[in-house]
């Protein structure tokens, strides 16, 4: 691939999704974009980059962004954030809110839906605790094909064995040929929506809990700050933000601070919360 072709991909990904790639990630372009090269009958990435610079390439550009931003997802990934949500954040929110107030949760890089559905399963199991309260879970992603997969709620045998306790499998899934389908009850608890994290989150409304895990690592610091500040502006004082294990707010924004003793869980800083 020529340096100019690489620059075309890097600029496209940065402007459309915030994804920052360096020349060391050429292999990622090669592996992720190979299906597009085949489909478009193009010889190499340089030819694809040339095609992207021509008029009428908007759909192709979208496909390239989707292919590069699709991230793997699995149920109850890393376990601890979900345990914290179930045992700390949720009880606190239920105690703080009037009985008729809805609780809103955002899975901000929903991919194929496992994170949002993990939260839905926790809430389904906490039905008595919720006492009829409305809980909304919104799963967003930039990739439409992943969102369609998420809405289907159909997972392979491999996927349902990554992180999902067998008791949950038995309770919430049924087998369909060699795959496993989530129950209508769980699927109906989550609404999936196309959303670019670079866009204004005010269009999504306010959220008590935000899971934004393993996506900020791909952004440069100013983009991270922009996304985090956007989330902060949509969150009440007692809200909770969950980031991935390799992510932090430190040095990026002063609007969030780590919750004491909790790795990967953040609350609004007191100054911000009081504002």
């Amino acid at each position: 691939m020529t340096p100019s072709a690489f620059s075309t991909f890097a600029a496209l990904l940065k402007s459309r999704s915030g994804l920052v790639i360096g020349p060391d990630k050429t292999y990622l372009l090669e592996t992720r974009l190979a299906p597009i090269l085949k489909r478009e009958k193009l010889n190499d990435l340089t030819a694809l980059a040339e095609r992207l610079t021509k008029p009428g390439a908007d759909n192709l550009a979208r496909d390239v962004v989707e292919a590069m931003t699709t991230n793997e997802s699995f149920f109850f990934r890393d376990d601890k954030p979900f345990t914290h949500f179930r045992t700390q954040a949720l009880p606190r929110l239920l105690a703080n809110r009037p009985a008729n107030a809805a609780i809103r949760i955002w899975s901000a890089a929903a991919s194929s839906g496992q994170e949002a559905y993990s939260l839905a399963m926790i809430l389904a199991d906490a039905k008595a605790q919720l006492a009829g309260r409305t809980v909304e879970i919104i799963g967003t992603d930039i990739a439409r094909d992943q969102l369609n997969r998420a809405r289907e709620g159909l997972y392979t045998q491999f996927e349902v064995q990554r992180g999902l306790p067998v008791q949950m499998l038995v309770k919430h899934f049924r087998k369909e040929d060699s795959n496993w389908r989530l129950s209508d009850t769980i699927r109906s608890m989550v609404r999936f929506k196309e959303f670019n994290l670079l866009s204004d989150p005010r269009t999504l409304g306010r959220f008590d809990v935000v899971f934004c895990r393993n996506v900020l690592i791909y952004f440069d610091p100013p983009t991270k700050a922009r996304v985090l500040d956007g989330i902060a502006a949509q969150m009440p004082a007692d809200g909770a933000l969950y980031l991935g294990g390799a992510e932090t707010v430190l040095g990026i924004t002063g609007r969030f601070a780590p919750l004491q003793g909790e790795r990967g869980v953040y609350g609004l800083t007191p100054a911000r919360a009081a504002a």
Binding site: V166, Q167, L169, V170
Partner: peptide, 11 residues
């Protein structure tokens, strides 16, 4: 054995 009935039996 990968059907639900076996899994339920095992549990």
């Amino acid at each position: 054995e990968n059907d639900l009935s076996h899994i339920e039996l095992a549990i």
